[in-house]
């Protein structure tokens, strides 16, 4: 019974693993390009296990951005998880404290979505099922990170094979993914213009903090929305 649950989880997580793997490899390769060692890249994948924020982290580190801003940015990109853990609380009441610890550590977007779907179908959300679903994503995430990093070490000049455009395009995809959020356009416009100006007048890495603060301040001052929105999920995100 419990073993069945585990394998059911593994089967459910398999397609997620397949679609996340290119991003794991991309993260590994670009981490090396931004000054990480093989160990650093896998260490980050193993302890954060949050793809989009890992990409943000390596890019900011590569730009020599101040450490506090790197950590804050990663926190902010992952902030949506707060909504997930609030929402799955009712399904995991029967887990032990240790099980809850691992449940939250492994709570990536597709894991959240599948847990909700399973509860909605009336199937039991067991820890073994949850762990099976998580492990088929978590373990390959480490392996693809390592493979990507090894590949990254073999590349002399990333520009020659076009690796340098991948992060800006990846981030652009993320920005577009947030477009349903309140005040998205004014925030993006303010941060973009402020960062372009700061890059010109102040220089890197200040363009990141100055641009970000411009958009955040604007969002804090704009009129508050009336309704509450669903959390925005990143479809491929680990």
């Amino acid at each position: 019974m419990t073993q069945d649950d585990f394998w059911q989880g593994v089967r459910g997580g398999f397609p997620v693993m397949v679609s996340a793997s290119p991003f794991g490899a991309l993260f590994g390769a670009l981490a090396i390009d931004n000054g990480f060692s093989l160990f650093d890249a896998v260490f980050m994948s193993a302890t954060l296990y949050a793809g989009a924020s890992q990409m943000v982290g390596i890019e900011l580190f590569g730009h020599k951005v101040q450490p506090w801003l790197i950590v804050l940015s990663i926190f902010a990109v992952n902030f949506r998880h707060i909504l997930y853990s609030a929402s799955i609380a009712r399904h995991i009441r029967h887990f032990s404290a240790v099980q809850k610890f691992f449940t939250f550590f492994l709570l990536v977007d597709p894991q959240y979505a599948e847990t909700e779907k399973r509860a909605e179908r009336g199937e039991p959300v067991t820890f073994t099922w949850y762990l099976g679903f998580a492990m088929i994503i978590y373990i390959p995430w480490q392996i693809t990170t390592l493979l990507g990093a090894i590949f990254g070490q073999m590349i002399g000049e990333p520009r020659a094979i076009g690796l340098d455009v991948l992060l800006p395009i990846y981030f652009m995809g993320l920005v577009l993914g947030f477009r349903k959020r309140d005040n998205w356009l004014p925030v993006v416009a303010a941060s973009s213009l402020a960062s372009i100006a700061a890059m010109h007048f102040v220089g890197s890495p200040w363009h990141v903090s100055i641009g970000a603060i411009a958009g955040i301040l604007l969002a804090g001052c704009l009129p508050l929305p009336k309704r509450h929105e669903e959390p925005v999920t990143l479809e491929h995100e680990v």
Binding site: V56, L72, V77, F171, V188, G211, A214, G215, G220
Partner: peptide
């Protein structure tokens, strides 16, 4: 707004 704001400065 933080993710869109930070990410815009990278784009």
């Amino acid at each position: 707004s933080v993710p869109a704001a930070v990410l815009s400065t990278l784009v």
